[in-house]
Simulated assay, not measured.
Amino acid sequence: MKQNLIETVNEYLSLGINQQLDYEKFYLYSIITHSTAIEGSTVTEIENQLLFDEGISTNKPMAEQLMNLDLKKAYEQSFIYAKSHADFSIELLCSLAALVMQNTGSTYKTIGGDFSSAKGDLRLLNVSAGRGGKSYLAWQKVPDRLQKFCDWLNAERKVVDKNDIHKLYELSFEAHYRIVSIHPWADGNGRMSRLVMNMIQYEAGCIPSIVKKEKRAEYIQSLAQSQEKDASKDFIDFMMNHHVDNLQKQIDEYKASMESDDIKGGQKISVGGQKKWSETTLKILELIKQNPKISRKELCSELGINPSAVQKHIDKLKETKMIERLGGAKGGEWRVNE
Rank of each mutant, 00 (worst) to 15 (best):
K312M: 13
L282K: 09
R296G: 03
K276C: 14
K312P: 02
V271K: 12
K312E: 06
S308Q: 15
K289G: 09
S308W: 04
T280Q: 05
S278A: 09
E279P: 02
K297M: 10
S270L: 14
E286Y: 11
C300M: 09
E302P: 00
V271G: 07
P292F: 11
H313T: 11
I305D: 01
E298R: 07
I269K: 12
I305L: 02
E279K: 15
I269Q: 10
L299Q: 03
C300E: 05
A309P: 01
W277H: 14
P292W: 13
K293G: 08
I305A: 04
I288M: 09
C300V: 01
C300T: 02
L303Y: 07
H313C: 15
L299H: 03
S301H: 07
P292M: 12
C300K: 01
L299G: 00
L287E: 05
R296W: 00
Q290S: 08
K293Q: 11
L282P: 00
G273Y: 08
V310T: 02
L287N: 05
K297V: 15
A309I: 15
S278E: 03
Q311K: 10
L287K: 14
L285I: 11
L303M: 11
L287V: 01
L299A: 06
E279W: 10
I294M: 07
K293P: 01
W277G: 09
K275D: 00
S308L: 14
K297I: 15
K289E: 13
V310L: 04
S295C: 02
T280E: 04
Q311W: 01
L282H: 08
K297F: 14
R296N: 04
S295V: 00
K316S: 10
S301A: 09
Q311L: 08
N291L: 00
T281G: 10
K289I: 12
Q274K: 15
I288S: 04
E298A: 10
V271E: 06
I314H: 07
T280Y: 01
K289A: 08
Q290K: 15
L299M: 14
Q311P: 03
P307G: 04
L282V: 11
N306I: 13
T281D: 07
G272F: 09
P307E: 03
G272V: 06
I269P: 01
S295P: 00
S278C: 11
S270V: 15
T280C: 11
P307M: 09
K297W: 04
K276Y: 09
V271A: 13
I284N: 02
E286F: 10
N291Q: 08
I294N: 01
A309H: 05
E279T: 13
N306Y: 03
K276Q: 14
E279F: 12
E286C: 11
P307V: 08
C300W: 00
V310F: 01
H313E: 13
I269D: 00
L287P: 01
K275F: 01
N291K: 12
L299I: 15
P307R: 08
S278D: 07
S278R: 09
W277Q: 10
G273N: 06
I269N: 13
V271P: 02
L287S: 04
G304W: 12
S308N: 13
L303D: 01
V310P: 03
L282W: 04
G304Y: 07
S295Y: 00
L299E: 05
K312H: 03
H313S: 15
